[in-house]
Simulated scan of single mutants.
Amino acid sequence: MAKREIDLLVLSDIHLGTYGCHAKELLQYLKSIKPKAVILNGDIIDIWQFSKRYWPTSHMMVVKHFVGLIAKGVPIYYIPGNHDEMLRRFKGFQLGSLRICNKLSIKLNGQKVWIFHGDAFDVVMQHSKWLARLGAVGYDTLILINRFVNFLAQKMGRGKISLSKRIKNGVKSAVAFINKFESTVCEIAASNDYKYVICGHIHEPVMKTMVTEHGPVSYLNSGDWIENLTALEYNNREWKLYRYNEDPVAQAVALNEKQIRKESHKELFNSLMAEMKLAK
């Protein structure tokens, strides 16, 4: 199968190591494309909730896929988020084509683009980390409940629902927080002459133009791989919001289910280390 070429791919909020992560679907998507550069914009591995008891082979295979891209020389920029914030101490680290940075400023088609995870603008994160961690555990539990509810709904011939989306959309304070988040980052971006600002963090995939006192700014959020299964793609001088659920090509990508079930973590780890040597 010919892979779809992409100039720049932005992914965030994958949350590897949690029950809610759709690693298999992400693998299908990654195997259907050929990006020239990748930006991993935070919360890729959920270190907050990382547990040796839950690290499926499919999650390790996602890591292996990224390492394979590094071995091929594809530039990958890793911008840590709040769930993988311990990696921020390695700012400036480089391994082959991999670079860790806390934010990224680039130019595309002559226009400045500001890319960062977004938790720096989260008041809860800044002042009550314990509360944010508690909320993360609650969110993961809700996702598990949601999967069980959808399993029953499908058995009854009904469509899927998102409990967390219904809760977020039904709580005025949550909607107000998202609106405030978007307007704040756009005001700061415009005041620094950025035409685009790209975030993750709030799991709300969107592309829109925000009007500020310093002029219009294009606000883009790559969403997540817990509920929305979305990414941002830049190709032919245009941004596009990718949605896995609307991509029959990626959904048709065959994964080696036997390998996913049987290949041991040790075998995958040894394979990953071999590719890391190639990257060096």
Rank of each mutant, 00 (worst) to 15 (best):
M1K: 11
D7Q: 06
L8V: 04
L9M: 02
V10I: 11
V10R: 01
G17I: 06
Y19P: 08
G20Q: 05
Q28C: 13
K31S: 06
I33P: 03
G42F: 01
I44L: 05
Q49E: 03
F50H: 06
Y54D: 01
F66G: 07
G68C: 00
I70M: 06
G73N: 00
V74A: 02
R89P: 08
G92C: 12
S97H: 10
I100C: 04
K107D: 11
G110E: 12
Q111D: 15
H117K: 05
A120M: 09
D122F: 10
K129D: 12
W130A: 13
L131T: 12
A132Y: 03
G138C: 13
I143W: 13
N146Y: 05
N150D: 07
I161M: 10
S162T: 08
V171M: 08
A176S: 10
A176E: 05
F177C: 00
N179R: 00
Y196G: 14
V197F: 05
C199V: 14
I202G: 02
H203G: 11
H203Q: 07
E204I: 09
K208C: 10
V211I: 15
H214P: 10
G215F: 01
P216M: 00
V217A: 05
S218A: 12
N221Q: 02
G223R: 01
D224R: 00
W225G: 12
L232R: 02
Y234S: 06
R237D: 15
E238I: 15
L241H: 07
L241V: 07
N245S: 14
E246N: 09
D247N: 05
P248Y: 02
A254K: 08
A254I: 14
N256L: 04
E257P: 04
E257W: 07
R261I: 09
F269I: 09
F269G: 08
E275N: 03
A279Q: 07
K280Q: 15
K280V: 14
